[in-house]
Amino acid sequence: MTDLKLIALDTEDLEVVSAHVQDAVVRVADMGYARADRRFALLMNRFDWQSVQGKRDKGQRKRAALHFDSVQSVVTAGFDPGAAEGVLSLLAITFMPIDGPAGIVELSFAGGGTVRLGVECLEARLSDLGATWAAAAKPAHALD
């Protein structure tokens, strides 16, 4: 599998990034906001949906980094940001424009947790960081 490197500068780009990080596993301690740099970053073990070779194949995971620039504010809800060993499953990333290029980026996690980033403009980068490994299980979602 080739290392993935994506940039999102608009809603359509972010939808592609969101699809690639769906079901990524994120430790709470691996997320952070660098206020001076106006950057929010997170490390994750992303599930590579493209690697699945049939119904019984469990797929692969890969370490990846995602960061957002031009971040003005960060608001978390639905989980304890101080629980360093907490683990979250990333479901989707969306962008809601507010004023011109400014808006809210929302990272939605299983169980209702969210991270909302107030951004001057949408600018996100996703990069794979290393080798792949076999996933313990393929993520499954209820269809209700």
Rank of each mutant, 00 (worst) to 15 (best):
A65Q: 11
P97S: 11
F109T: 09
L107G: 02
S89G: 03
V71F: 07
F109D: 10
I104V: 04
M96I: 01
F109R: 08
A92N: 12
V75Q: 14
G86I: 13
L117Y: 08
V119C: 08
D57K: 04
A83T: 12
V71R: 09
R63S: 12
R116C: 13
G59C: 02
E120S: 14
S73F: 05
P97E: 02
I104Y: 04
E106M: 10
A64E: 00
I98W: 03
T114W: 05
G78T: 03
S73E: 14
G100N: 01
K58H: 14
L66V: 14
G78H: 06
F79W: 12
G112T: 03
S108T: 14
T114A: 07
L107I: 08
Q72H: 05
G100F: 14
L90D: 00
G118T: 15
D80W: 00
S89D: 02
H67S: 06
E123W: 05
D80S: 15
G103N: 02
K62V: 15
R63T: 06
G103P: 06
L91W: 06
L107D: 02
A110M: 08
D57F: 06
Q60W: 13
G111N: 06
R63P: 15
L91E: 13
T114F: 07
R116E: 07
R61I: 15
S89I: 07
V87Y: 07
E106C: 07
L88K: 06
I104G: 05
A83Y: 13
L66N: 05
A102C: 10
T76Q: 14
A64L: 04
S70T: 05
G103K: 01
P81N: 04
T94W: 02
R61K: 07
M96H: 14
G103A: 03
D69L: 10
P101F: 00
L90V: 00
L90P: 11
Q72S: 08
S108C: 02
L66W: 12
A84V: 01
P81Q: 06
L122V: 14
G111R: 06
P101K: 13
E106A: 12
A102K: 08
V75A: 14
L91G: 09
S89R: 10
E120W: 00
S89W: 06
R116G: 08
I104K: 07
G100K: 05
H67M: 12
I93P: 10
D57M: 10
V71E: 14
Q72D: 15
V71M: 08
T94H: 03
I104E: 11
A77R: 09
V115E: 04
V115I: 15
K58N: 15
P97L: 11
R63V: 13
I104C: 01
T76G: 01
F79Q: 07
E120F: 00
D99P: 05
G103S: 08
K62L: 11
L107W: 12
G112L: 00
G112A: 01
A84L: 01
M96A: 12
A83Q: 12
V71C: 09
R56N: 13
A65C: 02
E106D: 09
R116D: 04
A64V: 15
F79E: 03
E85W: 02
G82Q: 10
Q60E: 14
G112F: 09
A84P: 00
P97T: 13
R63Q: 06
G118A: 14
G111T: 13
